[in-house]
């Protein structure tokens, strides 16, 4: 394998708790290649969000370590709830990361406009978040995560709160955006079809404490379409993931 962009080594985290400590992650190790799309699959409570929070620098692991190639990475994060600031318009939410880096307003707007075209939000630039549907809000969140050209995208069940139809439309969108932008993606999900639709590789975490139980390459051809679900190979991969989750 070439040089990984992210290497996680024996990482564990324990939350202090009144009735005994809570082990959330147990010696998790894996690596991610540049431009790879990796899904982390696991039952709820298996420490998936915790893993992303550690990688985003929001939490310290209790032991073990992780390294990004080239030092401190720029992070683009998308959460389960779109997490848009209600006092900013769609456009202003997208430019937030650039404002934090003191990028000139006109350059920020030009870059935001590009992303608005990419995620298909033309005409909603000056909408308030309260007026956006769940799917549109998540598009804004994805655009915001991309605008500062991050080294890695960390997605925490970004489509978990959407209805089934919108969610599947967003899979196609995200696939297209990922291929267009050539980004490294680490995405958390608890849906087997979601991971098989999107990922190059799926890591399965066990029930708490989370431990990598299976590291499965997904060699389904791209672009992946809906019919793919009915192929024998898809069924076989889904079965192996299901077994690993238990």
């Amino acid at each position: 394998m070439a040089n990984p962009i992210l290497t996680v080594h024996d990482m564990s985290i324990t939350f202090p708790d009144r009735n005994g400590d809570l082990d959330a992650l147990d010696t998790v190790s894996f690596s991610v290649q540049p431009r790879e799309f990796v899904c982390v699959l696991g039952p709820s409570g298996s420490g998936k969000s915790t893993l992303l929070r550690i990688l985003a620098g929001l939490l310290e692991p209790t032991s073990g370590s992780f390294t990004f190639a080239g030092g401190k990475p720029k992070i683009g994060m998308v959460f389960q709830q779109s997490n848009l600031m209600p006092w900013r318009t769609a456009l202003e939410n997208i430019t937030l990361p650039l404002e934090l880096q003191s990028v000139q307003a006109d350059e920020a707007h030009a870059r935001a406009q590009e992303l608005i075209d990419l995620v298909g939000l033309q005409g909603f630039e000056s909408s308030w978040p309260r007026d956006l549907s769940g799917g549109m809000a998540q598009r804004v969140a994805i655009a915001r995560a991309l605008i500062h050209d991050p080294d890695i995208l960390l997605l925490d069940e970004p489509f978990g709160s959407l209805d089934a139809l919108t969610r599947e439309r967003m899979w196609t969108e995200l696939s297209r955006i990922w291929q267009r932008r050539q980004k490294t993606v680490l995405m958390v999900t608890h849906s087997i079809s979601e991971s098989l639709f999107l990922a190059d590789r799926v890591l399965v975490l066990t029930q708490r404490p989370g431990k990598v139980k299976l590291d499965l390459g997904v060699d389904l051809p791209r672009p992946r379409a809906d019919e793919m679900r009915y192929t024998a190979h898809f069924g076989e991969l889904a079965r192996r993931l299901k077994e690993a989750i238990g």
């Binding site: 929070r53 985003a56 994060m77 600031m85 937030l96 934090l100």
Partner: peptide, 26 residues
């Protein structure tokens, strides 16, 4: 989650005050 977002983008304390806490508490 707003604080998480700001920290993941390496916002400074001043930026968090100005761009998050003031408008949110207003």
């Amino acid at each position: 989650p707003f604080h998480d977002l700001m920290h993941s983008l390496r916002a400074t304390r001043g930026q968090i005050l100005r761009m998050l806490e003031v408008p949110a508490a207003l």
